[in-house]
Simulated scan of single mutants.
Amino acid sequence: MIIRLTDFEKKQLEQEAERRGMTQSSLLRSLIARFPVPVASALPNPRDSVRDSSHTHGVALRCEMNRG
């Protein structure tokens, strides 16, 4: 995943992460975790086992700064 940020947005991210005592990646992940759950995913599939009901995906976040 590529996230494009202006210099100002990058500075805001840095400052907010520092204020909360967390890394920028952790801050972004915590913000994404607050997004609403899609309706289709809100109801569990009874055919899924407990082991398969929760998935995590490794995603590398790369912040790029745009001038302007």
Rank of each mutant, 00 (worst) to 15 (best):
Ala60Ile: 10
Leu61Ala: 01
Leu27Ala: 04
Arg20Phe: 10
Ala40Asn: 09
Glu18Met: 09
Ile3Thr: 03
Met22Ala: 07
Arg34Tyr: 05
Ser30Cys: 06
Gly21Cys: 11
Leu61Lys: 02
Ser25Ile: 13
Glu16Ile: 13
Ala42Val: 04
His57Val: 13
Arg67Ala: 14
Phe35Asn: 02
Lys11Ser: 07
Arg34Ile: 04
Met22Thr: 13
Gly21Arg: 11
Leu5Pro: 01
Ala42Arg: 14
Lys10Glu: 09
Glu18Asn: 11
Phe35Lys: 00
Gly68Phe: 14
Arg51Lys: 13
Pro36Gly: 05
Ser26Trp: 02
Thr6Phe: 04
Gly68Asp: 15
Gly68Val: 11
Ala17Leu: 06
Ala40Trp: 03
Val37Cys: 09
Leu13Gly: 01
Gln12Met: 08
Arg34Gln: 14
Ser25Trp: 00
Leu13His: 00
Ser25Pro: 00
Met22Cys: 15
Cys63Ala: 06
Glu16Thr: 14
Val39Gly: 02
Ser53Glu: 12
Lys11Asp: 08
Glu16His: 04
Arg20Ser: 12
Lys11Phe: 03
Asp52Lys: 06
Leu27Met: 05
Gln15Tyr: 05
Thr56Ser: 06
Glu16Pro: 00
Gly21Tyr: 13
Met22Trp: 05
Arg62Trp: 03
Leu13Ile: 07
His55Ile: 10
Leu61Ile: 15
His55Asn: 07
Pro44Ser: 12
Val39Ala: 12
Thr6Leu: 04
Leu13Lys: 00
Arg51Glu: 15
Leu61Pro: 02
Val39Cys: 01
Ser49His: 10
Val39Met: 07
Pro36Leu: 04
Leu31Glu: 05
Ser25Leu: 08
Arg67Asp: 15
Thr6Asn: 05
Asp52Leu: 09
Gly21Glu: 12
Thr6Asp: 01
Ile32Leu: 08
Asn66Val: 15
Glu16Cys: 05
Val39Gln: 12
Asp52Thr: 10
Ala42Thr: 06
Glu14Thr: 10
Gly58Ala: 08
Thr56Asp: 03
Val59Lys: 03
Asp7Lys: 13
Lys10Gln: 06
Met22His: 03
Leu31Pro: 00
Cys63Thr: 03
Arg34Ser: 11
Thr6Ala: 04
Arg67Tyr: 14
Ile2Cys: 00
Ser53Lys: 13
Glu16Val: 13
Ala33Thr: 04
Lys10Trp: 04
Lys10Ile: 00
Val59Gln: 03
Arg62Phe: 05
Ile2Phe: 02
Gln12Cys: 09
Met65Phe: 05
Arg19Glu: 14
Leu27Lys: 04
Ser54Glu: 10
Thr56Tyr: 00
Arg4Gln: 12
Pro36Val: 03
Asn66Cys: 11
Asp7Asn: 11
Glu9Leu: 02
Asp48Tyr: 07
Gly21Ser: 11
Ala42Asn: 09
Met1Ala: 10
Glu64Lys: 10
Val37Ala: 06
Glu64Met: 09
Arg20Asp: 13
Ala42Cys: 04
Asp52Asn: 12
Leu28Asp: 00
